[in-house]
């Protein structure tokens, strides 16, 4: 992959409350097909993910949105029977090229999972894990500042500041998920993938996470899979609708939800199925 710097978003800030971003494709998928053995799970998907935007992937259960998400950081490599064809580019470079190192890829594309999965270590150790293995910091104080900053960005610092050495598993569900977000942020990825991050959480925790996504989008490109259309409408700027492994429609969130082009999209939006 090229030696591009980590932050190459073209952002134009108008100094006032409005923020305008010129669309640049951070991730671009072209004719992506995914096979689990014989099963054709993703059929010929072409999609752009823009920088510093939240893109939502919606669709009925089993439509392949999680599968597609996992392609974006090559997590599907861990499954033996999975085969991916087509190209997915990150900043113009195909991540499925043979010389691409998935370890390096995942420092640039992070992931938050559906069920919070903090390590059975202390809160501090959980967040410090990423920077440690990649050797991103050179001293203990640096590591501490990274951990604290990540926890703050994830909105968790105030709640755990006095018990950083308590076990990560001792937190509530919502706190655990924020811990996982902090853990992902700590390696400064450019993209954060979120696979139904709120599905295991209660409404209050969900609201907190949605607030967090809103703040994070300014520094990261976020792709979120969600089964809740209301959530997609709340947090995302672009939405892609998947159905039975195919990308049915993709566009601005407002347009998708108020004026969908495809009949299937309309059926899903209005609750006729899924």
């Amino acid at each position: 992959m090229s030696l591009s710097s980590k932050k190459d978003a073209q952002r134009v800030s108008l100094g006032d409350s409005l923020l305008v971003e010129t669309a640049c494709a951070k991730l671009a998928a072209r004719n992506v097909n995914v096979f689990y053995g014989e099963k054709h799970a993703i059929k010929d998907v072409t999609l752009d993910i823009n920088c510093n935007e939240v893109t939502a992937l919606i669709g009925p259960s089993g439509c392949g949105k999680s599968t597609f998400l996992r392609c974006l950081n090559r997590m599907n490599d861990t499954i033996d029977t999975c085969r991916v064809t087509g190209t997915i580019t990150l900043d113009g470079e195909n991540i499925y090229a043979s010389k691409v190192d998935s370890v390096y890829l995942r420092t640039r594309v992070g992931m938050v999972f559906q069920k919070p999965n903090p390590f059975p270590k202390s809160i501090f150790e959980n967040v410090a894990y990423g920077p440690r293995i990649h050797g991103l910091t050179s001293s203990r104080s640096e590591l501490e500042s990274v951990v604290l900053t990540s926890l703050e960005r994830a909105g968790l610092l105030e709640e755990v500041r006095d018990r950083l050495h308590a076990s990560g598993i001792s937190l509530s569900g919502g706190q655990q998920q924020r811990l996982c977000i902090a853990r992902a942020i700590a390696v400064s990825p450019e993209v954060i993938l979120m696979d139904e991050p709120c599905s295991a959480l209660d409404p209050i925790a969900t609201a907190k996470i949605e607030e967090l996504i809103d703040e994070l989008q300014h520094n990261f490109t976020i792709v979120i899979v969600t089964h809740s259309m209301q959530q997609a409408a709340r947090v995302s700027q672009r939405t892609a609708f998947f159905h039975l492994g195919e990308l049915v429609e993709c566009g601005g969130t407002e347009q998708i939800f108020t004026n969908p082009v495809n009949r299937l999209t309309q059926g899903y939006i209005t609750g006729r199925f899924g």
């Binding site: 030696l3 980590k6 932050k7 050179s138 990274v146 900053t149 700590a186 520094n219």
Partner: peptide
């Protein structure tokens, strides 16, 4: 929710250059 003043950007954590990182990964 999309109309807030953007917060200060995250301080760049890669004090080592990307080349260092790649060497370490190797």
């Amino acid at each position: 929710m999309n109309s807030r003043i953007p917060p200060t950007p995250l301080p760049s954590l890669s004090i080592q250059s990307t080349q260092c990182l790649r060497a370490r990964i190797r």
